[in-house]
Write a protein that binds this DNA or RNA. Structure first.
Length: 446
DNA sequence: TTTTGAGTTGTTCGA
DNA sequence: GTCGAACAACTCAAA
């Protein structure tokens, strides 16, 4: 059993298949340098902690090895005289290519490669229009997705492990040096957090999910990212209410974007809508300096800075704020969405290629079912609307903590501003908004 | 087959 | 202060 993004023992179709008939199961995790290079320290640390939790849950049997999976998996299969290598299917571009290579290497030594299940309620490719083609719009996708349905969660799998006691195994690496705090890792932590959310947050999700100062979101993203919980386990706890329906929708978005990336792997790097390639963007040295200010949380727009600093401090950012900082990068700074997406992937514990890149493409107006080009978030209006008391701003931008609520969204209006005691906004939103509208209109030939 | 209405997340302007 | 319209263009499904 080769674990990847399915670091759990419950409701695990691939593991259940591997463990059938009391088969001996060799549990493997490969630390792939190609992925380590790509992951930031927070996600890597969370992965290592998750591996320790998984290892513990199987009595210390997890076999950890380093290297190219094509070499490592084939070698362990030969050592252990395995007849099959079992995985949960991976639908992302790198994973598909990697798995094809591993399957070929295994086939050369007469070992099977079997994929069972995915990390989605409905696996990519599974939701189709009546004519057999994929959906390009979310709402009809979700209708069909709902109708398609998914199985009930399975039980904890009890496997007959043949693991680290018997086969050479590398230690799970120590955490890299971290400058942020992380949520507790592991399948147990995932279920604890979910139970807490069901008990105290889910029923008011529709009311509070957009308020970054309120702990109104599920915080399940990192656990879903690593498969410490399967979405179907969450869906099984949802009922028919407005709040539950909105949460169900969020899980549908996750499946939708995985489906879009599956069908258009190039959209991880390029505009999904190629006609948007002509939008004029800034990429010179001055643009790079503006990007650095954004990344460090020094734009002068309090809510934007709060979000960017929350990301650096915790490896996570509230969803509403992700949209606001993304809109700011794309539509106030005129930078390529790919710059922002890369920064997010480096810092997010929950960083997932499909959701991240397509969330960014939505903000940039270049993706499937994207925001219309003229929808430009006003960073101060959003701030007043979604952080009315300024609690979130004061928490993450301490230099603004003493400002009155009447000034906290626009510190440049405060009495100390004239004396230079507050950061000036790096750009004028009203000016850049007009600039964006004009650039997009030019790109669309208007 | 054609038409029609609806579609995650917003802002600004003018009445 | 409040409210509706305008800001596009296209996909999809139901009528």
């Amino acid at each position: 059993m080769w674990f990847r993004r399915d670091l759990r023992l419950s409701d695990h179709p691939a593991l259940a298949y591997a463990a059938r008939d009391n088969n001996e199961v060799v549990p493997l995790f490969v630390i792939d340098p190609a992925l380590v290079r790509y992951s930031g320290q927070p996600r890597l640390a969370f992965m290592y902690r998750s591996l320790r939790a998984l290892n513990e849950s199987m009595g210390g049997q997890l076999v950890v090895r380093h290297g190219d999976p094509q070499v490592v998996v084939a070698a362990l299969a030969a050592e252990t005289h395995s007849t099959e290598v079992i995985v949960s299917r991976d639908y992302a571009p790198y994973g598909r290519e990697r798995d094809a290579g591993v399957a070929a290497a295994l086939a050369a030594q007469q070992v099977g490669f079997v994929g069972k299940g995915s990390q989605y309620a409905v696996a990519p490719g599974g939701v189709l229009k009546p004519d057999g083609t994929p959906y390009a719009v979310f709402t009809p996708f979700r209708r069909t997705w709902n109708h398609h349905g998914w199985s009930m969660p399975g039980d904890v799998v009890a496997a007959n492990w043949s693991g680290a006691d018997q086969w050479p195994c590398a230690p799970i690496p120590n955490d890299p040096e971290l400058h942020c705090t992380l949520p507790p890792a592991g399948e147990g932590a995932a279920h604890s957090r979910w139970d807490e959310f069901v008990a105290s947050g889910l029923d008011s999700y529709d009311q509070s999910r957009d308020l970054p100062a309120v702990a109104g979101t599920s915080m399940m993203s990192a656990y879903l990212r690593w498969g410490q919980v399967h979405p179907r386990q969450l869906l099984a706890d949802l009922r028919d209410s407005a709040a539950h329906e909105i949460f169900r929708s969020e899980l549908a978005w996750r499946d939708f974007y995985a489906d879009v990336l599956f069908r258009s792997p190039q959209s991880a790097r390029q505009n999904l809508q190629q006609k948007m390639d002509t939008i004029r963007l800034d990429t010179d040295d001055a643009a790079r300096e503006r990007f650095e200010l954004w990344a460090a949380g020094c734009t002068g727009y309090p809510l934007v800075d709060a979000g960017m600093r929350q990301l650096l401090a915790t490896g996570w950012m509230h969803n509403r704020v992700r949209m606001i900082v993304a809109s700011f990068l794309v539509k106030d700074l005129h930078l390529p969405w790919q710059w922002g997406a890369r920064h997010f992937m480096r810092h997010l514990v929950d960083g997932d290629l499909a959701s991240n890149q397509h969330g960014w493409q939505w903000s940039a107006g270049t993706g499937t079912d994207a925001a219309p080009y003229f929808r430009v978030f006003n960073p101060t209006a959003q701030s007043k609307r979604f952080d009315p008391d300024g609690h979130y701003i004061r928490r993450w931008v301490p230099e603004l903590a003493s400002l009155a609520t009447s000034h906290v969204h626009e510190p440049w209006t405060s009495p100390g501003a004239a004396a230079g005691h507050v950061r000036q906004p790096m750009i004028d939103h009203a000016v850049e908004r007009v600039e964006t509208l004009s650039r997009y209109q030019v790109a669309m030939g208007r």
